[in-house]
Amino acid sequence: MAATITNPNTTYSDRLKNLIEYPETGILSKIFVKDDHTQQNLFCLASGTVLEEHTSAKNATVMVLEGEGSLTLNGEKIDLTPGVLVYMPAHAPHALEASTNLAFWLILSNANQQAE
């Protein structure tokens, strides 16, 4: 289970560098905050980690913080480097590979929410 850093009713301040830590292998996931509508996670992947193709029932936004890798989204390869921003609608097939240690911020939101 991922550690939770804060909750929706508490203010929080820190530097991202203080939160990023890489496992020797695999993935370290930290839930930054979660409420009824969204969840924000920090993902830290060890170099060489592969996530096989899968889908999510939620919309997802990925913001690459550190490292390099590739994301295959709907069959299209996207290079992941610091500053890259990717939006994935719910149910879009995607896979990920970390070429180096890779950190990204993931925001999940309910797919059934309508923009106002």
Rank of each mutant, 00 (worst) to 15 (best):
A90Y: 06
V62R: 03
N101D: 12
L85S: 15
S56Q: 15
I5T: 01
A2V: 08
N7D: 01
E21V: 03
T81D: 05
Y12L: 00
T11I: 10
L42M: 06
L16V: 12
K77A: 14
N9Y: 02
M1N: 04
M63L: 15
M88D: 01
Q39Y: 04
E97T: 14
Y22I: 05
M88I: 08
T81L: 08
L28H: 09
V64P: 10
E66Q: 13
K30H: 03
E76R: 07
K77I: 13
R15K: 12
C44V: 05
S70M: 14
V64T: 06
D36E: 13
H94T: 04
T4V: 10
A111Q: 14
N112A: 09
S56I: 05
T6S: 05
N74Y: 12
S70Y: 09
P8E: 00
D36T: 00
H91G: 12
P93D: 06
T100G: 10
E76I: 11
L65A: 11
G83S: 11
K77Y: 09
G69H: 10
N18I: 02
G26T: 06
H54E: 10
N9C: 01
P93R: 07
H37Q: 09
A92H: 09
E116L: 12
W105T: 08
V33Q: 02
M1K: 07
S13A: 11
L28T: 02
F104P: 00
T55S: 14
S70I: 02
E52G: 08
E52C: 09
V64G: 04
A46Y: 00
T81C: 01
T100Q: 12
T25A: 15
L42I: 14
T11Y: 01
S47M: 02
V50A: 15
L108W: 09
A90V: 02
K58H: 15
I27Q: 03
G69M: 10
G75P: 01
V86I: 13
P89W: 03
M88Y: 06
A3K: 06
I27D: 08
N9D: 04
Q114P: 05
E97H: 06
G69W: 14
A2E: 03
F104T: 00
P23L: 03
Y12T: 00
G48K: 02
N41S: 12
A46H: 00
E68D: 11
T11G: 02
A111Y: 14
G67C: 08
D35S: 05
Q113G: 08
T81G: 04
Y87S: 15
G75T: 04
V84S: 06
N9K: 00
C44L: 12
T38K: 14
H54K: 05
S70V: 03
I78T: 11
P93H: 01
T81F: 02
Y22D: 04
P8R: 00
T38A: 15
C44G: 09
S70H: 06
E66A: 04
P89N: 14
D36F: 03
K17Y: 07
L80Y: 06
Q114V: 09
M63N: 10
G48T: 07
E66T: 15
N59V: 13
F104S: 04
L102C: 01
I5N: 05
E24W: 03
A111L: 08
E116S: 14
T49C: 14
L16C: 15
A2Y: 01
G69D: 07
A57K: 15
A103H: 03
I20C: 13
A92N: 12
K34A: 05
P23G: 14
A90F: 04
G75W: 06
S47F: 08
Q113T: 15
I78H: 09
